[in-house]
Structure formats: C-alpha cells, structure tokens
Write a protein that binds this DNA or RNA. Structure first.
Lengths: 198, 198, 198, 198
DNA sequence: CTTTAACCGAGACGGTACGTCAGGTCTTTCC
DNA sequence: GGAAAGACCTGACGTACCGTCTCGGTTAAAG
C-alpha cells in the first residue's frame, strides 16, 4: 500500500509503530472512531509520516490488519489431508467457527469488511493479499477430494467454496444466527451433497 | 428508531423531508460522507430536529433506507409458484442478480450493510424489519416445494436460504466475482442438489 | 417594560415567579449565562409567557432587578438629617461602601450596569425608575445643607452628586482600588471643599 | 492574553487579521453580537486558531481594543504643561469630552467596559495595560501643579484623578447627562477647589 | 569526511462537521 | 383567550479531526 517514493529511507520503526498503534486503537475504540491524529500520537509519530506513506485512513487500517496475516506469511496454509474430505472440511469449518467467536478477532475483521464493502480498491487488495492465498489452499484440498472421487470432478471450486463459506460469513457478519460446530458440520454436508460426484 | 420523547407532537412533514434528504445524499455523495448538517440543510430542518428523534447518524441512514421498503409494505412479497420450484427459484435469483446490478440500489445497500456490520442494534432491526419478512416469503415457497417432493421434507429452510443467497450476497459485497444469470442458475441447482428429497 | 397588550388578563402569579426565578439565576450563574429557557423552567412557566410580556432577555433581567427596589418603593428614601451635612453624608457614603461590599449585591448590579451600558433604552428606564428617585432624595438633603450654609448656594447639585458618587462607583465597577470607610470620608470631605459656600 | 502554547510558531498574520476583524465587527454589529465564527470567517482563519490563542470571546475583544492603543505605544502620553494647571487640565478634559463624542470611539469602549465590569481578570489587565500608563502621565502633571503651589502638596493624586474623571466617565457610560466643554471646565474647577493648597 | 536532501517529530494552520445550547416563533391542549 | 408545554428553525458555541504546511533536528547517501 505504500506510495514508495523511494522507500529506502523509510523508517521501519515508525511503520511498525503506526501499524501497531492502529491495531490497538481499532480494538479500543472501534473502527469508525479511529483517528489519524490518535494513531500519530500513540505511535509517537508526526501526522505527515502517515500521510507520506498511506493515501487514506482506510489504507492504514487495512494495512494494519493485513500486517497481522503477513506475520504468518511463511506459515503453512495447507489444509489437513487425511484422505477423508468430509472429516477434513468439518475440522476446518469448526476451527473457523471458533475463530469467529474470538472477540479479539471481531473488531478488526468487521473493520476490514466495512472498509472493503465501500472501497473497490481495497476490495481488490483484500482479494489478492488475503483471500486468494487462503482460497487457493482450500481449493488444493478440494482438488484432492476430486481425485479421490469424493467431489464431482467438474465442480466449480469457487462455487463450492462460496457455498461452504458464504453462509457462515454472512451469519457472523449480520449476526443472523448462532455459529455452532453443528452448523459447521451441516454446511459441509450440504456442500458435499451439492457437489457429489457422478 | 425514534427516541419518542412524545411523538404525538412530532412533525410528520419534517420526518419525511429528513428521510428523503438522507436518501438523496447517500446516492450523491456516498454513505461515509453523508453529514447531519447537510441532511438538515437539504431537508430545510434544524439539526436539533434530527437529534431529537434519532440517536445517531447511522440510525437516520438506516431509517431512511428502511422507509423505502415500508412504502412497499402492503406489497406482495410472495414468490411466484408455478409448481416448478427450480424454475421459480431461478427466476427469483436472476431477478436478484439484476437488482444488485442496479446502480441506484448499490450505494444505499452498501451503506445499510456497513451500518449493520458495526452496530448490533441496527443489525437486530434490520433482521426484524427487512430480512425476516422477505425470508418468510421465501420459506413459504420452499415449503411448497417440500410438499411437492421437490425439496427434502426435513431440510432446515434457514440453511437452504443461506446456501442460496449468501454466496450471491457475498460476491456482490466483496466484488469477488461476476454476477450473471448463469451464476444464479448454478446456485439454485447446487442448493436443490444439496437438499434433494430422499 | 411589559408590552401590555392588555395586561388585565395577565397572571400576576406568573409575573412574580418569572422575576424571582430570574433573580435567583443571576445570583447563581451570573448575568451572562442566564437563559430564558432556564427562567421559564424554574418559574414553571411557558417560554411564550415570557416573550408575551417582555421584548428581550435584557428586559427581563432589568425588570427583575428593578422589582427589587420597587418592593421598597413605599420605603423612606430620605437621608438622615442631623443638621451636620458632613456627618450625614459620611454616614450615607459609608453605608454605600458597605453595600457595595455585599456579595449578594455584586452580581445583580454588575449585570444591571452591563445592560445599561449597552442599551440606551434601558439606560433611560434605569435613570427614571432607579437613579432619579434616589438622587432626588440626596439632593433634598443637599438643599438642606445649602440653606444651613454648609454648601454653596449656587452649587450645581447634580455635579455635587457626581463628584461624591462617581468616584466610588467607578472604583467598585473597575475594581481600581479598595473601598474603605476612610475612602468614603475622603470623598465627602473633597466634595464639601469643592462646593464650600462663599 | 495568549495562552502561548509555544508562540514561536504563531502566525503573526493571522493574529493581526483576527484583531482587525474583531474591531470591524464590534463597530458593525455591537459588542454583544460579535460571534467567534464571524470573526474567524472575516479574518479568513479557522476557529481553532482563535481558540488556540485566546481563552474566551471577551479576551479577543479585549485584545483587539488593546491593540489599538499599543499601536500608539511610543506616543507621547505627557499632558501639556504651560505652567497653568487649571488651563492645562481644562484643555485635556475638553479633549476627553470631545473624544467621548466620537462615534467610532463609542462602541469599542462600551464593549471594553462591559467586558471589564464582568471579568476581574480582564479588569486587572485593563488597569495595567491601559489605565495605569495614562494615569501616571496625568499624575506627573498634577505633581508639577503641586510643586507650583497650584494643588495641595499632600493631595492624594489617585483621588484627585477620580474626582476629575469619574463623573465624566459615569455620565458618558450611563448617558445621565450632556457632555459639554462647560461641564469639563466645571469639573476641573471643582477638583481644584477641593484640593486647593493650604 | 563533509555536504545536502529526504525523512522525521511536532504542531500551527484553514477548514468541515460534530453534538449541544439557547434564542425566539409557532402549535397543541388544557383550563 | 391566556397559559403550560414543548417542537420547530436558526445560528453560535467549543471540540475533534481532517489534510496541508512549515519548522528544526537527524540521518544516510552522494560527492
């Protein structure tokens, strides 16, 4: 997201302080009320240092949340593969349900989502940097399932992922229902029925 | 949403002017930049008259969009019923896809969604006043499908609705893929496969 | 100050409550911060009842202070007359000094004076209703002094009064020096020297 | 009067524009109706720039009038000294009378006085910055009169000044009588009689 | 090594909008 | 028809932040 007029002279220390302060403020006061001035003050940084490297408040917030995942970049995104697609997916979906229940997770992701909804540019970055890698890992596991005859060989994997995850995400986002392990199981079962081979 | 300090003395004329001005501003400048002062000016109303009856900017915006649907309250929410569930659902889903492509629809719904994401109170109102009635109409049609043996009799209809609609909604919200009639069809087919009877 | 559109139907009870509430508020919050709404609330009166009978906030405040003196209207304004003008004046001036030191006296009179400075209409009322009667009483005593040969027979009594009182009033108003009994005496002595007979 | 959070970074241009705009508004709309917002707009300045450097509206108004006199700071405050105290004082008092009749002088001084009446802090500044230097110049001339045997050697010069000026100032402030050259003369004569030597 | 230019913390600046307060008007309801 | 109640439009309040713009001070590459 940096404008990188040069980048070589950029203070990494300030950059980290800004991102950390932003994350802290999101947790404390909520996304809407995070102020650039507060970030600068908290980070011990001049406002200009923020404006030099980020084009908007949304971009800073976005980057600060993105940075969380980048820490785990080297991490193995690969899904478990026991040979039993249904069992593996249920494990992953139950983990996702648990993750959504974590209050530390709540505010930043709601902030990120609100940002993404209203800014097409950030939406593109979100897809490229966050969603795509994760989705590719999931699709890799689904392809394994196709090879093992547990999933229709001609299934549109993007569609399968949507059928699996979108109901869960929507329920969380709109608080329209409880997120339980059973719900995770039910989604996996429905998706596998929908894309059963042959 | 009003605080109703009394409500009997409330000026209906001012109320309508405020909601109309809010809708106009959402379309013109986008949700984030709608200012209470601008609403008041446009509506020919004192700021205090807004603050007297709504607790926050979000509430005004929410109400203004809600009012749109309330105009159509008497409207027939019922889905078409030709006896062919798949055909009927495809018709409805294709219509939904078309609706999401309407630019007049875009900004208010993104605004409403952003509001709902970050405010649990508004989320509850959204479910009660907007989502539930529509969902009930849809479920009524699904029940018809169950009776006709086109849908599993024991299917959790809330889950069916989520599998049908959440992928569509998420794709639109996050701009993560194209919304085409074919996509609508594919979703209907997947959902019906997932909840096929017996 | 009332507009007296009719006056016959006027509620004397409301009028008194308004004036009393105004006086109380002047003492409590100071002249600048007295609000019509607060007066109305405190007096248990509608705002319109105030606006019906007084043209402005200044007028209400002015009247409320004026009313204090009107209570004492029947009172004997006459100065003491022992035959010794100097002694009598010193007694009166020392009493005035004491009165100015009374904190309950402070705020209303400063309020009244500020009102009078900036509003020529109120200034005229102030002179007619408050200043003149008192000044006439003082001049009566001075005329006694002239007859007794203690004061120049041709002295301009308005000027004598000004030389006596203006220094005292100015010192209090601008807080430009201490108000002591000795100061009162010094003023009387100076004035009598200035207007010594023959 | 500035709070001087630093002062070195302060924009002198803005400061001057604010004071000039304030003076202009006092003349145009009168002291009571001068609004900070109007000052800021007229001066082409953000409101915060006013609040940053002045604690209250009164302080701005006070400073703006004070600045007028500071322009003339190097000015010769000394009174004429022809050797004839009475003639010199009459000249000065007649000049004062004329000054009070100047309408450009009217509104600012009434504004300043109203401010000083109700704010002890401003009163102190008023005495130190405006009144004292002028009074000292006058007392210097009076001392000359004492040396020349035209004024009692033991006269309290502060008292003499009050007897001379307070009546004039009060008459103007309360509009309680005409300000004429003859009145100026009468005051000088009375004061000199009151503090005649020997 | 020195220059020198970009980066940095700091924070004043012209602005916009906030949410509150009060002014004076208008309307409703009661007595 | 006066009066209590209070909603209404208006406009100023003082505050919070915006994004831009100097200020010195530091720092790291280029000379």
């Amino acid at each position: 997201m940096p404008k990188t007029p040069d980048s070589s002279r950029r203070s990494e220390h300030s950059r980290q302080a800004i991102l950390a302060a932003t994350r802290a403020l999101i947790s404390e006061v909520g996304y809407e009320k995070v102020a650039i001035e507060a970030i600068a003050a908290r980070a011990g940084v001049g406002k200009q240092t923020i404006y030099r490297w980020w084009p908007s408040k949304g971009a800073v917030i976005f980057d600060s949340i993105l940075a969380l995942s980048e820490d785990a970049d080297g991490r193995d995104l690969a899904l478990p593969d026991t040979g039993d697609l249904e069992a593996d997916l249920k494990r992953v979906m139950r983990a996702t349900v648990a993750e959504f229940a974590d209050p530390d997770f709540e505010k930043p992701i709601r902030a990120l989502t609100a940002e993404v909804i209203n800014d097409a540019g950030l939406a593109a970055q979100y897809r490229d940097k966050l969603a795509r890698p994760v989705d590719e890992a999931k699709k890799a596991r689904l392809r394994g399932g196709q090879r093992a005859g547990q999933l229709a060989a001609d299934a549109d994997l993007d569609l399968v992922l949507e059928v699996l995850y979108a109901p869960l995400f929507q329920r969380w986002l709109q608080r329209s229902g409880p997120l339980t392990p059973e719900y995770a199981d039910a989604l996996v079962e429905a998706a596998l029925r929908a894309f059963r081979p042959g």
